[in-house]
């Protein structure tokens, strides 16, 4: 057994209670949703909360609703349910594909959207047992001062390793956060920061309550994930792509995000890829090449960094290729 450290457990049944509890309990409190990220990290001594506030009983966070303008997904919606939801598949394919690619089937039955959005960053020098980290001499994300990825690095470069983040970013999703100060909305693309220690703008006492994905006609999206096995693995790289076409079927807008690089998923800038008459092949190639130039995988996830860099092109091309290829409804 990897014994869990001692903590107190709280089971609020309303969002209001949960928000109040988080404020009251302060820094020593952590939220637990599906537990598939937090509990292994606690078993490794990476997180040592005094209180766990469980969102499992907060029913209002589980809904998936389609309005005229948005697809709204509650933070406690299970990844497996999102992946299989017909409206998500229809309006937010990248998210459906991303949630279907998380971990293994059990993780998707247990894991939630909010939990995946807030997944802690990962690094081969961090996601290890206490014994292993002690033998290493610890690292700057936890218990130590040195970074083992970037020699003499002062900033943690642990990698954003969730699959939903890039999908939500390309879908222009908005995340809703509830805190004692009220509710605020943050664009998914502004939710992540480059700090590997805490890579989101969520304050410790805030709760991600939902993701709102705007509906847009002519929009098509896709997601690709690089991993060594067909299941269980975290991404070695992932990419989400979205293509908007206007009424004439002409591509008006493209968004590509690549993640599992460092702490923040990377939006790919491909100035000019759309600025002239281009074929889809050229568009895809333009983005793939731009991504290749802009993304430099680190040894935070594995040592095959050259291969992963090559694969940036492949995952971008495959995601964008699918997003651009099919005709929008």
């Amino acid at each position: 057994m990897l014994p869990l450290p001692v903590f107190q457990h709280h089971s609020p049944t309303t969002l209001a209670d949960a928000v109040a509890l988080m404020a009251e309990l302060g820094d020593g409190a952590r939220l637990i949703a599906g537990g598939t990220d937090l509990l292994p990290n606690m078993k490794h001594g990476l997180v040592e909360p005094e209180h766990l506030v469980s969102l499992a009983g907060v029913r209002e966070l589980r809904t998936i609703v389609l309005t005229d303008e948005h697809l709204e997904l509650g933070a406690m919606a299970r990844l497996a349910d999102i992946a299989a939801h017909p409206e998500v598949v229809r309006h937010a394919a990248a998210l459906a594909e991303a949630t279907a690619a998380v971990g293994g089937p059990h993780h998707r039955r247990m894991g939630t959207l909010g939990g995946n959005v807030c997944l802690d960053t990962r690094c081969v020098y961090f996601n290890q047992t206490y014994f292993w980290r002690q033998a290493l001499g610890f690292c700057l994300k936890k218990d130590g001062t040195a970074c083992h990825v970037v020699a003499s690095g002062k900033n943690c470069v642990a990698a954003a390793s969730n699959d939903s983040g890039p999908a939500l970013m390309v879908l222009d999703a908005e995340l809703e956060l509830a805190g004692v100060g009220g509710v605020r909305r943050v664009l998914a693309s502004e939710f992540y920061t480059p700090d590997g220690i805490t890579n989101t703008v969520r304050r410790a006492d805030e709760i991600v309550t939902k993701a709102r994905i705007p509906l847009k006609s002519g929009r098509k999206s896709a997601f690709e994930k690089l991993r060594r096995r067909g299941a269980i693995d975290y991404p070695l790289l992932n990419a989400a792509a979205r293509v908007d076409r206007d009424r004439a079927g002409v591509i008006a807008n493209v968004e590509v995000v690549v993640s599992a690089l460092a702490a923040r998923p990377k939006r790919i800038k491909a100035q000019g890829a759309l600025a002239r008459e281009v074929s889809i092949e050229a568009l895809v190639e333009g983005y793939a090449n731009a991504a290749f130039k802009q993304c430099r995988p680190l040894t935070n996830l594995d040592n095959d960094t050259e291969w992963r860099r090559d694969m940036v092109k492949v995952v971008v091309a495959r995601a964008l290729g699918r997003a651009a290829a099919a005709d929008p409804e």
Binding site: M1, I32, S54, I232
Partner: peptide, 29 residues
């Protein structure tokens, strides 16, 4: 128990019908 941290599925049980990992489920949940 095969790994005690959610990597192997040996601890799978059904919770309200769904197959889940009992090593990553708090009893209180």
């Amino acid at each position: 128990q095969g790994c005690d941290k959610g990597d192997c599925g040996a601890c799978t049980v059904r919770l309200d019908g769904a197959p889940i990992l009992s090593c990553l489920t708090l009893a209180l949940e």
